[in-house]
Structure formats: structure tokens, C-alpha cells
Write a protein that binds this DNA or RNA. Structure first.
Ligand SMILES: [Mn+2]
Ligand SMILES: [Mn+2]
Ligand SMILES: [Mn+2]
Ligand SMILES: [Mn+2]
Lengths: 138, 138
DNA sequence: CCAAAATTGTAGCCATGGCTACAATTGATA
DNA sequence: TATCAATTGTAGCCATGGCTACAATTTTGG
């Protein structure tokens, strides 16, 4: 797990994996709700042009997260599915934590999307414990 | 405050202001502890080459956050000091929140460096309230 | 005061992630 | 089925933020 003593170095590393995590997560969710994932779906979701999505998808394909043929749908590889599931789980924990803290849902959803990539395993565990604790209360 | 319904759009905006915030904050702290801030100080702090710092400093100068003459020290403008103070305050709140949650100092410092840029005002307030609450306890 | 070390600047490269404009393909429907 | 709409691809642009290599300047020690 390499405990980077330099905070900014870790933050930069977090950012370098952020796109892959958000994309595979989105692909999984779109497939789950529409049957197949297309470039337009991701463009709408992320609020970017379809060109940006196409280029990113091609990078992620080269990196082994997904596959796609010309004019075809976007499909996750085994690796892509693994990362998507891990990311979704972590996203969920962060979101539930913010909700448990009493933050409004729409704000919590926005904050979680950015925060999720910077939460260490230790912090994630504390978040989980906190949520579990609030469930027990009244 | 514009409540971006699209999480990823907000996250991208957070990232677009991140460098300026981290730099002015660092400049303020270096000045405070060494009397003056130089390119090397920032390069060490951020774990990047002096070239990266030079280029970024020149961008931030163009954007009005700081000034610097050739081979001279880096000085914050009024705007730079304002942003630095705000950023330091927010950073401190996030850090103290993580510590109050029971996270180890070194991990908390690393996580805070990334998280701080994605915390909305509402969430920041809840963080503050949580820390204040734990202070009262035993 | 001068040489070596440290610092800073400059040139030029790369990857990521944005965009517009336009072309090609596919899908829907009249 | 022929056309129009939607989707996807491609070309080419930009800004940010990394880097190495080398040049210039400043600082420091003897
Ligand atoms: Mn995200
Ligand atoms: Mn997410
Ligand atoms: Mn930061
Ligand atoms: Mn971030």
C-alpha cells in the first residue's frame, strides 16, 4: 500500500486513477439500467462532449479496462468489472457516510464524487464504522 | 454558489482551482517559517521538479495570485493571501475532522490534502460541528 | 575574489482531458 | 425504401501539469 509521506504526491496518484474508476463505474451502472452502454450515455453522465468520451474510452481500452468496436457498445473487461465493483462499493460508503453526518442528499452526492478518490483504506474503515454506529442509534 | 446538479462537473471545477489553492497555501507557510519562499521550497514540498514550479508560478502570476521577478522570491498578492487564508482554514477543518474520527495523523494529513478541494460549505460546516462536539466529550 | 555549488531559467518533449467542426455511419420513420 | 435524425468517428486545436537537458545567474566557501 506504500505510505507516501508526501501528501501531494499521493493526491496526484489519486487523480491519475480517477478517470478510469469513474468511467468503469458509469459503464457498469448504465449497462445495469439500459442494457448497454454507449458513448452518448457517458457524455451525458459526465457533462462532456462525445469526443472526450471517445478518446478516453480508447485510452481505457488500451489500458485493459474495457473493449469497444466502431459504432458498437462499450463492454467491461474482467479487470474493468473488478475495478467498477470496488469503486462502486467505496463510492457507496463515502456517500452513506456523508448522509449519516446529516448532509443533504444532492450535496452529499456531489461531494462524494470528488472525495471518494482521496479516501485511504483506514479512513474508509472509519467511515463504515461511523455509519454502522448511527444505524444502531435512534 | 451554483448548485451543479452534475457531480462530475463540480469535481472538475474543484480540480481547476486546486493548484492555485495548494500553491498559495504553501507559499504562505514557507514565508511564515523561512522568511521567504523560493522555487526550490515549493518543488520540495510538492515533490515535483523546479521546472514544473516555475511554470505554475508564472501561470499563477498571470492569474493575479502572486508576483515574482527573475531569480527573486515568490510574493503573494492581496488576492493570493486571501485565498491562502481561506484554503488553510478549510484544510485545517478537514484535517481536524479526520483526526477526531480517530484516523492516524500521517494518514489524515495525506487524505486531507486531496479531500479538502471537494468539500462543500455544507459539509465543511458539519465537519466543524462534529469536531466541536468531540471536544466537549471525554 | 574566485571557483564550485545551488538556484533559476529556457527549450522542447509528453500525456491527459477538454473543445469545435466536419465526415461517416447507423437507426428511425414517413 | 429513402430520407432525416442520432450517433460515432476524425482532424486539429488548446490548457494544464508533468519531465530532461542544458544555460544562466546567484550564493557560498576557501
Ligand atoms: Mn468520482
Ligand atoms: Mn463515483
Ligand atoms: Mn490540497
Ligand atoms: Mn481530487
Amino acid at each position: 500500500m506504500k505510505t507516501d509521506s508526501k501528501p501531494h504526491v499521493r493526491t496526484r496518484r489519486d487523480h491519475s486513477t480517477e478517470t478510469a474508476e469513474d468511467y468503469v463505474e458509469a459503464v457498469l451502472q448504465v449497462i445495469d439500467s439500459r442494457g448497454a452502454c454507449r458513448v452518448v450515455d457517458l457524455a451525458k453522465r459526465f457533462g462532456v462532449s462525445h469526443v472526450t468520451v471517445t478518446k478516453t474510452v480508447s485510452r481505457l481500452q488500451a489500458a485493459g479496462y474495457l473493449t469497444s468496436e466502431p459504432y458498437g457498445p462499450i463492454i467491461l473487461t474482467r479487470k474493468g468489472r473488478r475495478v467498477a465493483n470496488e469503486s462502486m462499493k467505496r463510492h457507496q460508503i463515502v456517500l452513506e457516510f456523508l448522509l449519516a453526518l446529516g448532509i443533504g442528499r444532492s450535496v452529499a452526492e456531489v461531494d462524494a464524487e470528488g472525495m471518494e478518490h482521496h479516501v485511504s483504506q483506514e479512513t474508509l474503515s472509519k467511515f463504515e464504522a461511523f455509519v454502522a454506529g448511527r444505524k444502531g442509534d435512534g
